[in-house]
Design a protein around this nucleic acid. Structure first.
Ligand SMILES: [Zn+2]
Ligand SMILES: [Zn+2]
Ligand SMILES: [Zn+2]
Ligand SMILES: [Zn+2]
Lengths: 151, 151
DNA sequence: CCGTTAATGATATTTATTTTCAACTACGGT
DNA sequence: ACCGTAGTTGAAAATAAATATCATTAACGG
């Protein structure tokens, strides 16, 4: 789990016989400039780039979100919703986890280095190359506990 | 996070004005009797029940998997695939986490009580009622590291 | 046993994601 | 700087997980 620059991405792509493209650089930079706590779906990103005047086709976005997640550059999150969301994958001390209300989807980020250490050690012990380590706590927030609305 | 019996499920359903049904009991018992390490998708469960001569409609299965996950009875897992998978949610010492190869989806379960404690404490500190706590380690398994096949 | 109302299940629908494929372009080689 | 190869893009079509619809069934309190 390392922080990526556009040139580092380019180098790793070339290692595999792949190419750097303006679209890939745009996507990487967009996530790097996103404030912490912002998690984008594929459509969110598509809309955001359109607004900023640098539109990228939705298929390309889907393809590269998956690619960059599998490279360990992005984290693929399932925040108790019906679509995947992504954020940049940064090492400690930026690395964090998510506490998610399963009813209203309100999400709180929190940090805990010991969990990250457990993840790194577990992967290493089995000879796995670590890409991402995420603790997801599914729970009911105080507001939803009070609400009468059913599960 | 408690272990559920059919009667405990019935009691909690009644608290909310809902009903116990044979289908709900079948689903609960099926997951309780499943060996550790078995994770079923909605369609897996539908097929399994059909084989066992106690078929349940797919809509009913989808509805109740979601319901029981939101009650904390089942865990909803995203095991690096394109569909959600479920398993019974049992407290320590059965509680476990998942190490997932993002390329071949091979999954290893492992236990770590300290992570569960972090989850419980984090939820409590924010006044959240804990339902499930899952550490997902996304990584590349030894076999896939060796393979030439691209990400 | 009855009446109310939640639950089921076959079907239709939605929608996130993937696939297809022709046009484009990154980039290694000349 | 120019080619040629082969990876990439993006619009459109296809796929499939998940949800909604709705007539029928059945749980359960009285
Ligand atoms: Zn986050
Ligand atoms: Zn909530
Ligand atoms: Zn498991
Ligand atoms: Zn693998």
């Amino acid at each position: 789990m390392v922080a990526y620059s556009p040139s580092a991405l380019k180098a790793e792509l070339h290692e595999r016989g792949w190419r750097m493209t303006p679209q890939r650089e745009t996507i990487l930079k967009t996530f790097q400039n996103l404030p912490e706590g912002r998690h984008l779906s594929a459509e969110d990103l598509c809309d955001l780039l359109k607004e900023e005047g640098a539109p990228i086709g939705l298929s390309t976005i889907y393809r590269n979100l998956k690619l960059m997640a599998r490279m360990g550059i992005l984290r693929e999150l399932e925040l108790a919703e019906d679509q995947k969301r992504y954020e940049i994958n940064r090492p400690a001390p930026h690395h964090h986890h998510h506490l998610i209300c399963v009813r209203c989807n309100k999400t709180i980020e929190f940090k805990n280095d010991s969990v990250l250490k457990v993840g790194a050690k577990t992967a290493e012990k089995s000879g796995y190359q670590l890409l991402d380590c995420q603790l997801s706590i599914h729970a009911v927030c105080p507001t939803c506990q009070r609400s009468i609305l059913p599960i």
